[in-house]
Write a protein that binds this DNA or RNA. Structure first.
Lengths: 217, 217
DNA sequence: TTTTTTTTTTAGACTAATCTAAAAATATAC
DNA sequence: GTATATTTTTAGATTAGTCTAAAAAAAAAA
């Protein structure tokens, strides 16, 4: 149905149109795909004939509902495989992304259903990101980054941003995993660093780090 | 290192050169790859510059030791994934081939080591085929097809040929799985069908079926 | 041994995905 | 509101893998 490349474009378009209600621009997509604008133009023409996006020249692309459910199925596969790698094979969460990027393109609906069952129908992946169900339904919780919390806040870590492997290594070291308790002890005006309690462990984190830890809003 | 297509050619060349010590001919490879001889000629030129095969015009190809270990790694992955699908996800053995054909191309040495460990370092896959170890070593047992056995023979099924999904379904139905006991009760001269005992169950099998069940020689 | 058949290779063309360079459209600045 | 800068698209080329049709080599038959 869709080539590996088409699937990757679709996923990128989906992620870029998350949140923002605007059309995705050619250059933004080129950046996300580490390719050139000319290549993007070619591909979005192809994808729009397949009706997963709508495309107006010079104005960017919008994902259709067909495209959205296609993208969500790829994301479902990605997150189920990440869960498998961590929960069953003992990978650490900073190692799983690249492998899941490959595994998400395996085409077998039966495999994914069986895998989901084997994992006990997990709701979130190891980074706290929600796993779409087999109908493509995803539970979007409004999440707040820790840097926006008030001193005194108490709650649980819901998710962490999984963009950077080194960040994940660090978060793992200080114990900042989804599900662990967190309390804001103090905030330094000067550099916006924070003192927080993770489970029962006091740590100081910089602003960048605090922006990448998320709690339920 | 190797493209998906290159890996599939390499695997086919490996299998075609198993047993026979002769060079693999262009047409045989074209047949195995469901492609045309002209395409094969192009690809074997490419593979020989990569030094996984040697190629002499009009005389066919021979796999090099580099090519052999490359092929064995793909086979290792294929058979470990098949074992995973059957043992962990509850697939039946006639359903796993196509999915494993995809999974065998996932490139992550760490994943395969972890998977091997998770499965308890299995020696054979669900069809009884040996799984190469992480050094590419494979235990080749001389196997004899049941149609060549004498009446009165007793032993265990070591493997079954996994080429055809319908055959596998049938073998599963009569209980002919690797590890089960087998005894030859009789042989019909006319059509070479056989009466055999599987575990403690009497069944009649045709010649074709008897050629696809293997015991240790 | 010469002829015929079969197999294999070459030549040239096609598709998917990419690129560079140039042209066209849109956005920004003065 | 015209000029400049930026973004996007088009044009044409490239690589991997495939194809058909024709040429060349090897094998089989007469």
């Amino acid at each position: 149905m869709f080539s590996l490349t088409e699937e990757n474009y679709l996923k990128a378009i989906y992620h870029l149109s998350e949140g923002g209600s605007k059309a995705v621009l050619t250059n933004a997509l080129a950046e996300a795909m580490s390719t050139k604008a000319a290549s993007v133009t070619d591909m979005i023409k192809k994808l729009s004939t397949k009706e997963v996006i709508t495309y107006e020249k010079y104005y960017g692309v919008n994902i259709t509902s067909k495209g959205k459910s296609e993208a969500l199925m790829i994301i479902r596969k990605h997150r189920l495989w990440e869960t498998f790698l961590v929960d069953k094979l003992g990978f650490s969460w900073d190692e799983v992304h690249e492998v899941a990027e490959q595994l998400e393109h395996i085409n077998s609906p039966r495999l994914i259903e069986k895998l989901d069952e084997f994992l006990g129908y997990p709701k979130v992946d190891p980074h706290g990101d929600p796993i779409p169900d087999n109908k493509g339904k995803i539970k979007v919780q409004p999440l707040i980054p820790v840097d926006q919390l008030q001193v005194g806040f108490q709650g649980k870590i819901a998710a962490v941003k999984d963009s950077d492997s080194n960040l994940l290594k660090y978060l793992d070291k200080i114990g900042a995993r989804p599900g662990t308790k967190i309390k804001i002890l103090g905030k330094e005006e000067y550099d916006e660093s924070m003192e927080i309690l993770i489970e029962d462990h006091r740590v100081f984190i910089s602003k960048v780090v605090s922006q990448n830890i998320l709690v339920v809003g």
